[in-house]
Amino acid sequence: MAEKNPDNALAWIAVSAGALQRADGRWLMHRRPAGKHHAGLWEFPGGKVEPSEKPTECLVRELREELGIGLDTINLVPAGFAEGAGENAGSAIVILLYTARRWEGEPQALEGGAVGWFTPAEIARLDKPPLDSLLAAQLFGGVGAA
């Protein structure tokens, strides 16, 4: 998973994120809840990959916990990645983005915040964390960038 530096701190943290697309072509974005880093900003939902997990397994777990939906790893397609410096010059973050067009259940914001369905042009106008802006630009060919 993550490489360690000589000071025994993680050099980078792997995060899996999902870009869910409905049949009508709209994409799900998750609004970060109050009290969390990047509170109020819109992101592709997901979370940190645990040492015992593959990135796709992490995403299945995170979307079940955050959105209450069921996914099969076979329905996850790699779509891109973004890398950035961590908070306060901490470990770098690498977000691995996957798309999914099939899942079970209706996504809900189970941990606070909100969910919404947007076109790529609407996503471009949402306030997003920097790495999510990069991921949107990759996914939508520049249309979803801030």
Results as ranks from 00 to 15, higher is better:
Leu126Phe: 03
Met29Ile: 03
Gln138Ile: 14
Ser16Thr: 11
Pro45Ile: 05
Asp7Trp: 06
Ile69Trp: 08
Glu43Pro: 05
Pro78Trp: 13
Gly70Glu: 13
Glu53Gln: 15
Gly141Asn: 03
Ser16Asp: 08
Phe44Asp: 03
Leu20Glu: 00
Leu97Asn: 12
Ala114Thr: 05
Thr99Asp: 07
Ser16Val: 10
Ala82Lys: 05
Thr99Asn: 09
Pro45His: 03
His30Glu: 15
Ala19Leu: 00
Pro33Lys: 12
Leu20Ser: 00
Lys48Arg: 15
His30Gln: 14
Gly90Glu: 09
Glu50Leu: 14
Ile13Arg: 13
Gly113Lys: 02
Ala17Trp: 09
Pro55Thr: 04
Ile69Cys: 03
Gly141Lys: 02
Trp12Pro: 05
Gly80Ile: 00
Leu41Asn: 14
His38Leu: 11
Gly142Lys: 05
Leu110Lys: 14
Cys58Asn: 13
Arg61Leu: 04
Ile93Phe: 12
Ala34Cys: 03
Glu83Gln: 14
Ser52His: 14
Arg22Leu: 08
Asp72Phe: 04
Ala89Thr: 06
Leu71Gln: 02
Ala124Arg: 13
Gly80Tyr: 07
Leu97Val: 12
Gly141Trp: 05
Gly80Thr: 05
Ala136Asn: 10
Thr56Trp: 05
Val77Ser: 14
Leu63Ala: 10
Pro120Gly: 03
Pro120Asp: 06
Leu131Gln: 12
Arg125Ser: 10
Ser91Pro: 15
Gly112Ser: 00
Pro129Phe: 02
Ala137Arg: 08
Ala9Met: 10
Glu62Tyr: 04
Gly113Ile: 10
Leu20Ile: 09
Phe44Asn: 08
Ala121His: 09
Pro120His: 09
Thr99Met: 00
Gly86Met: 12
Phe118Asn: 09
Val15Ala: 06
Pro107Cys: 06
Glu50His: 11
Gln21Asn: 07
Ala85Gln: 15
Ala23Tyr: 01
Thr119Arg: 11
Asp132Glu: 10
Gln108Gly: 05
Glu87Ile: 04
Ile13Asn: 12
Pro55Leu: 02
Leu97Glu: 09
Glu66Arg: 14
Asn75Glu: 15
Leu71Ala: 06
Tyr98Cys: 08
Trp42Ser: 12
Leu63Cys: 14
Ala19Arg: 01
Gly70Gln: 04
Ala19Ile: 09
Pro51Asn: 00
Phe81Asn: 15
Gly40Leu: 09
Leu10Tyr: 05
Pro130Thr: 08
Pro33Leu: 07
Leu71Ile: 01
Val49Gly: 10
Asp72Met: 07
Gly68Val: 08
Leu97His: 11
Leu131Ile: 09
Lys128Cys: 00
Gln21Trp: 04
Asp127Pro: 00
Gly80Val: 05
Val94Tyr: 06
Thr99Lys: 10
Ile13Thr: 13
His30Ser: 12
Gly18Phe: 07
Gly18Thr: 04
Ile69Thr: 09
Thr73Cys: 10
Pro33Ser: 11
